[in-house]
């Protein structure tokens, strides 16, 4: 019955939502090309590009050789001269092979040339741990790129944002780096039909609350939401902020929340030291919101080691729901 489908919200997986965004972009703009390793008939290592090559052909869904540095550089050169490439790294870890082109070229060329050019380039990075892929296929390196002026760095946590932020990135004249958590690819959620954009640089309040603020990124947003439900049953009302953009960071949303709650936990999967949570904490500490704090800021981040293979170790080195619960309870009960 048609009546039923009308009342139900359409659901797509995170990977399907990204594919739909790329499909819309390919259909509406001849300048858009997809580039990456095994994104054609294979469909991408995580089946994100899927069957797009059948619809758009190998000229627009281009398999690159296993040449991350060269491939990234080709995308930079193409973006400088009229194309709008979406470049997929097979794993975000492989960006290490291409840092020269990302950091020294894509990020800087507009500035170095006095603003006479722009680089409308989108790069996609499957990121994060939890797949048993060990140290070279599991990192969260958004802070590396977040440290580079000239780049914009996104971490969508829902299917709706994954589509909307990719379309926003394509409208953006500057290089935009999108980190997609691999565990999220299969997660389903409501995704609006057709074209829309999710703003870059704007955090989302996923759950309003008054007792403490949890600022989370990517996969950690879902862990924070799960923790918040448990906390609510205990009478602790947590506000969960999905940062969504690492650079430029949404200062206003975070500070307003801290002014309201007086307590802050930052949860992120990247290595704790010098990570995204360090920046969030410093942002609060340097602002008037500091005066509203009733307790020290707590950071929960990745352990100071590479991601291990053993599944129990792998879980242990990134924040989990119990870690968030412990931190939140201690903060709320004034133990910190």
């Amino acid at each position: 019955m048609n009546a039923m489908t009308k009342t139900e919200l359409r659901e797509l997986s995170y990977a399907e939502a990204i594919r739909e965004a790329m499909d819309i972009a390919l259909a509406s703009d001849e300048r858009v090309v997809l580039m990456g390793e095994d994104i054609g008939v294979y469909g991408g290592a995580f089946q994100v590009t899927g069957d797009l090559v059948e619809k758009y052909g190998t000229d627009r869904v281009m398999d690159t050789p296993i040449s991350e540095l060269g491939g990234a550089g080709v995308a930079v050169g193409a973006a400088l001269t009229g194309l709008k490439p979406i470049f997929e790294f097979q794993f975000s870890d492989f960006a290490a092979l291409a840092m020269e082109q990302i950091v020294n070229q894509a990020a800087k060329v507009r500035y170095m040339l006095g603003g006479s050019v722009s680089v409308p380039l989108v790069m996609r990075f499957p990121a994060g741990s939890g797949t048993g892929a060990a140290a070279q296929h599991s990192q969260s390196i958004e802070a590396w790129l977040g440290h580079v002026p000239g780049l914009k760095v996104l971490q969508p946590s829902t299917p709706e944002d994954a589509k909307g932020m990719l379309l926003a990135a394509l409208e953006d004249p500057d290089p935009v780096m999108i980190f997609e958590h691999k565990i999220l690819y299969k997660m389903k959620g409501h995704v609006p039909e057709g074209y829309y954009t999710t703003p870059i640089g704007k955090a989302a309040i996923r759950r309003p609350g008054k007792d403490l603020t949890i600022v989370a990124t990517s996969m950690m947003v879902h862990k924070a939401m799960a923790a918040a439900e448990t906390l609510a049953a205990e009478g602790i009302d947590a506000e969960v902020i999905d940062l969504r953009t690492v650079r430029p960071m949404d200062r206003e949303t975070v500070l307003a929340s801290v002014r309201k709650t007086g307590r802050l936990v930052c949860v992120y999967e990247g290595v704790k030291t010098l990570g995204v949570g360090a920046e969030v904490s410093a942002m609060v500490a340097e602002s008037d919101a500091f005066d509203f704090l009733d307790a020290p800021i707590v950071r929960l981040g990745g352990a100071e080691c590479p991601i291990p293979y053993n599944p129990e170790l792998e879980k242990a080195v990134v924040p989990q729901v119990p870690d968030i619960l412990d931190a939140a309870r201690n903060l709320a009960k004034g133990r910190i």
């Binding site: 300048r31 090309v33 000229d59 540095l69 060269g70 491939g71 990234a72 550089g73 080709v74 995308a75 930079v76 050169g77 193409a78 973006a79 400088l80 001269t81 009229g82 194309l83 490439p85 020269e100 082109q101 020294n104 070229q105």
Partner: peptide, 18 residues
């Protein structure tokens, strides 16, 4: 640094038929 960028410029020329 300019080598892959040149290849990208050539890719644009081919795709856009300039």
């Amino acid at each position: 640094g300019g080598l892959p960028i040149a290849v990208g410029a050539a890719l644009s020329a081919k795709r856009l038929g300039t």
